[in-house]
């Protein structure tokens, strides 16, 4: 029936348009829904979402120990060559040679915060931090060494 479809089309359209207007009208009248953060003003109390990705950091515990085995899985996972891992050979107490991390080089200026290195890491040694104020005067400051000086791998991490 043509006329019936025509009229029901009109009513359906009006109803869906009113539904949209109800939502925007709700937002218009409810100021508490506003999600804008007035950034430089609220620098102290600003809350970032949990999944915000600012930079890659390596976790160190209180004994200055990390969990990185130097397996280079993150380096292979990185799509644009942000991570460079230099390994060395440690001598274990049994007198065997063992591959270990020497320097974890992280080029922040190349990083796109894609999270692939964190997903690739088998030992959860690295994670995404929330610091995003990265501007510096010299580009070379953006090339970072993630393992702290004198740190070593935690016991029992393979």
């Amino acid at each position: 029936m043509f006329l019936k479809k025509y009229i029901s089309d009109v009513f359906g359209a009006v109803r869906s348009l009113l539904k949209g207007m109800r939502l925007t009208g709700y937002y218009f009248t409810h100021r508490k829904e506003i999600i804008t953060q007035q950034y430089p003003d609220n620098r102290e109390e600003m809350k970032l979402p949990e999944r915000f990705r600012g930079e890659v950091v390596m976790l160190h515990d209180e004994h200055n120990e990390h969990a990185c085995t130097g397996c280079t899985a993150c380096e292979l996972a990185c799509p644009n060559g942000t991570i460079k891992i230099i390994t060395k050979f440690d001598i274990t107490p049994e007198g065997k040679k063992k591959k270990a991390l020497d320097t974890f080089i992280y080029h922040l200026e190349l990083c796109t915060m894609c999270n692939l290195c964190i997903e690739a890491c088998p030992t959860d040694a690295i994670k995404m931090a929330q610091n995003f104020e990265h501007s510096v005067y010299d580009r070379s400051e953006l090339t970072k060494k993630l393992n702290k000086p004198g740190s070593k791998i935690r016991e029992g991490v393979e």
Binding site: T24, G25, Y27, R31, I34, T36, Q38
Partner: peptide, 13 residues
């Protein structure tokens, strides 16, 4: 201002 409030923003302030 209206557009900002409808898009849950603050608008010019």
């Amino acid at each position: 201002k209206v557009s900002a409030y409808m898009q849950i923003r603050l608008g010019p302030n």
